[in-house]
Structures are given as structure tokens and as C-alpha cells.
Design a protein around this nucleic acid. Structure first.
Lengths: 132, 132
DNA sequence: ATAGTTGTAATAGTTGAGATAGTACAATAA
DNA sequence: TTATTGTACTATCTCAACTATTACAACTAT
């Protein structure tokens, strides 16, 4: 599990950690029950404050992505969304719309962006609905 | 042209203005050369500081989305992306990946998210590449 | 039990973004 | 000339995102 912080990014450090954990789980690089680096380990490695990592873990736990156990560490949790379908749809669709608007202003072609999106969906292991 | 600010949003006011202008252009609700509300008008209407609107307009002009003319107003500019294809691809793909990762964690189905994305692309008037 | 490791929490301080407020200026339109 | 437009600048305020330090509580290993 390799983490890194892009200091030139305008995305907050704690958010970058969250992004990377989520991304690695989505890519199956991190699997259920796998142990994450400890707060102090990661803080030391990335040369940032332990509280920053602690915050990332706290939020990830609140989202149900990981489980933390004082004295033993932080572990990847079960995948189990607790948001209603309506809420999920709104959250995701707002983001999708924003991207499509950006693409429009960048004059990105319809086929091109659909292709990019398809690639992303294939890259990550989204579930596939069974018929019936 | 109807603007509004969502105070419960954690998105900055000046960003919400930018989002809405871009969105309305992408939806053809705002077309080339159309005049935007004046800084003072909009600030008054939304009950926020004129400098906030000024900032939105300044950034929109820097992006080439609008053209401002002291003494006469702000107008929708020509659509003309000045970013390289590589830069555009990176910007958009980073966003796309983040959304797909979110969708994964929300256990949103592959077909479902592709459908949502298709809907968004259809809603906005993305260009369509000619063959050959 | 004891020692060491883990995540948690609380406090105080720093930095920068976002916004408010006020004023002055320059370009345009009437 | 007069009013309207966007621009520029400064000072101030608030809050998020940290940084830094310390203390604490829960678990593991011995």
C-alpha cells in the first residue's frame, strides 16, 4: 500500500488520503480486513501531522469504509452502503453533471468522454446487476 | 437568467456563480454575446458582496468563458478551449475516476451509472465528432 | 501485571481561502 | 457631462485545514 501526498494539489492532505484509500479498495489493491498503515507510521512517512491521518481515518470510519481498533490498527471494512438510493443518485448525479459541463467547455467530444467514462468504469470493479 | 446561491452548500459562492454560468451556457440557456447581469445587480439580488460577483466574472473571463467590458457589461464569449488535449484529458479523467470510485463505494451498479452518465451527456449539448 | 503499540481527544496556534466593506478609478454609453 | 459599467486596492473577519503537543484509553504481547 503506497500512499503519497501531492503538495501542489489544492486538495487537502486528509482528503488525498481518503481518496487513495477509497481508490485502492475500488481497485482491489486493498481488500477486506487488510490492515492499513498506523496513524504514526503514515504520518511519519508522508511527513505530515499524525492528526491529519487520524482525521482521514475518522472520516473513513464514519463512512463505513474502514474499522479502527485502538491498540491494534485500522482495517478495511465490509462494503456496505447505508445511503438511500435517492441520496446516492443525487450525490453522484451532481458530480456527473459538473463533469459534463466542464467537458462541454473544453469542447470535448461526446464519443470521447463516453469512452473515457467507460474506461474508468471498466478499470474499477463495479458490480454488475443480475437480470431478473 | 436565474441565479441563486445555496448557503447550505459547502461550495464557495463565487464558485456557485461560475458553475451556474457554465452550466447555463452548456444548456444553451445562455448564448454567445448574451449579456449577463451586472456585478452590482447580481450582488444586490443575491444579497452578497459585489466583490464576490466581480471575482466570479474575473475568473470566468480568465477561462475565456465570458468577455467583460467596463462601462457596458459582461457577455458570453465564443466557445474556444485553449487548453491542450493532454491537459484536458488529465483534468477530466481525474474527476471521472473520483466519481467512479464514489459509485463503487455506494455500490452503484455498472449499468446504472453508465445510464446516468449517458443521460447527462444527452442533456448537455456536447459536440459530436464527424467521421473521417 | 507490565510494557509497548494502537487509535482518540483536547488544546493552542498558523496559514490561507472566502467573504464583507469601503473607496477610488477607468472605460463606455447616453 | 453624467450615469453606469467592470476593475483595483486595502482592511477586516471568519473558518477550514492544518501543525504541534500532550494526555488518554484500548488492545497486544510478554
Amino acid at each position: 500500500m503506497q500512499f503519497n501526498i501531492d503538495n501542489t494539489s489544492n486538495r487537502a492532505a486528509y482528503q488525498q488520503i481518503i481518496d487513495q484509500v477509497k481508490r485502492d479498495i475500488a481497485l482491489s489493491r486493498l481488500v477486506k480486513d487488510e490492515k492499513l498503515p498506523t496513524v504514526r507510521q503514515l504520518a511519519n512517512q508522508l511527513a505530515i501531522n499524525p492528526n491529519t491521518i487520524a482525521k482521514s481515518y475518522r472520516l473513513l470510519e464514519r463512512e463505513g469504509i474502514i474499522v479502527t481498533k485502538p491498540g491494534s490498527g485500522a482495517f478495511v471494512a465490509n462494503l456496505d452502503s447505508n445511503l438511500s438510493r435517492a441520496v446516492r443518485k443525487k450525490l453522484v448525479n451532481d458530480d456527473i453533471e459538473r463533469i459534463v459541463v466542464e467537458a462541454f467547455h473544453m469542447q470535448i467530444d461526446k464519443q470521447i468522454i463516453l469512452e473515457w467514462f467507460n474506461n474508468a468504469v471498466d478499470k474499477f470493479n463495479l458490480t454488475t446487476k443480475k437480470d431478473g
